[in-house]
Computed example of a mutant assay.
Amino acid sequence: MAILIDENTRVLVQGITGREGRRRTKLMVEYGTKVVAGVTPGRGGQEVHGVPVFDTVKEAWDALGPFDASAIFVPAPLVKEAALEAIEAGVKLLLLVPDRVPLHDVLVISEFAKEYGAKFIGPNVLGVLSPGKAVLGMIGGRAENARKWFRPGPVGVASRSGGMTSAISYYITQAGYGESTIVHVGGDAVVGMPLPEVVKLFQEDPETEAIAMFGEIGTTQEERVADLVEQGVVTKPIVAYIGGKGAKKGTRFSHAGAIVEGTRGSWESKVTRLREVGVHVVESVTDIPKKIKEILG
């Protein structure tokens, strides 16, 4: 199994005729993702890499739906409108790719998603990849790279950094293991599916034996993962690296969501809390596969 997406996931691409939409649709289609339809208002009747384009999500749904997931590649100011349209049509998983989506818009999407029983990943996100099955978004960049760098295996990867999502997964593959699913949760302060939620999904996945997590300063996502471990909700071994050790208070580190205010969200508080509950916190990203080898053998 895998979490969030697999070879049977039926995908819609919103903003498919734009530059990013076209490029990432090519990746998804060539990797084997079941991309069923695309939407760009005013471009209905076109095709992008063999995928039919419709003017609205409803038109696409009526013609070829239902869809399990939608990858949204529209400009940041239009993300809210696109997300609400998809949720209202019945899509239950959204990937909000753009950065600089207004915080108020994200909060509106969150409330709307709760009302309709939907979930979203991002914004400011690379996506999700279940090796050998499907990719939603842009992890890997090109299909041949994604096939080379990531292989099916027992390690679930959850990360707040897009670049480190790929790097950690690559290191795990090179160490002779592989990944059940690779998830970039997004780099903003408010995201739809933060680390604790993804870690819980890995806990429930029978194919995932261990979890690799890249965290960083800012927010309390990592502390909430520690709470789940302490409560016994998550029992699978977690190997974590926390970025931002040298960052000063009030300074942003790497991402919009990586900023320390007072002691909240600091590197020290995260590392201390995770170690208290038995999470394996390593000093270097390259130590993650070494620790996984110790755990899994």
Rank of each mutant, 00 (worst) to 15 (best):
G186K: 13
R43Y: 14
V157Y: 08
K270F: 11
S110Y: 12
P194T: 05
K293D: 06
P102A: 06
Q231T: 01
W267L: 03
D105K: 07
E81F: 04
R23G: 00
Q221F: 04
K248R: 15
A134M: 10
I172H: 12
L94Q: 05
A82Y: 11
P131C: 03
V29M: 11
A86L: 01
R100F: 13
G162V: 06
R151L: 14
R23T: 14
V233F: 04
G186E: 02
A69I: 01
L64N: 01
I238T: 09
G215M: 02
Y177G: 10
I182S: 09
S166T: 13
V74P: 03
V285Y: 09
G278H: 12
E276N: 14
V199I: 14
S284E: 13
S159W: 06
M28L: 08
I211A: 04
L93D: 03
V51Y: 05
A210F: 04
P123T: 12
F214H: 15
P52E: 02
E268G: 12
Q231V: 00
A37C: 06
V128K: 04
G250A: 10
F150N: 05
K200M: 15
T235D: 09
Y116G: 01
V97P: 02
A83Y: 08
A76M: 09
G117H: 08
G21R: 11
R151T: 15
P206N: 04
I259F: 01
P77Y: 00
R23C: 00
K200S: 15
A212C: 08
L107C: 08
T40N: 11
K270P: 10
I16Y: 01
K26L: 15
V29E: 00
A247L: 02
E85K: 14
G156N: 09
K290C: 01
E230C: 09
P98M: 01
R10S: 12
V199Y: 00
I295A: 11
I121K: 07
P75N: 07
E294Q: 14
G262E: 07
G243C: 08
E294A: 05
G265Y: 03
I3D: 00
A258L: 05
G117A: 12
L84D: 03
P52F: 00
A60L: 09
L201F: 11
P41Y: 05
L296T: 11
K34S: 12
V125M: 03
D105C: 10
I139S: 07
Q46W: 04
G32Y: 05
A60S: 13
S180K: 06
S110H: 14
R147P: 03
K119P: 00
I288D: 03
H184A: 12
G32Q: 09
V125D: 10
R142Y: 03
H184G: 13
L27V: 13
V191G: 13
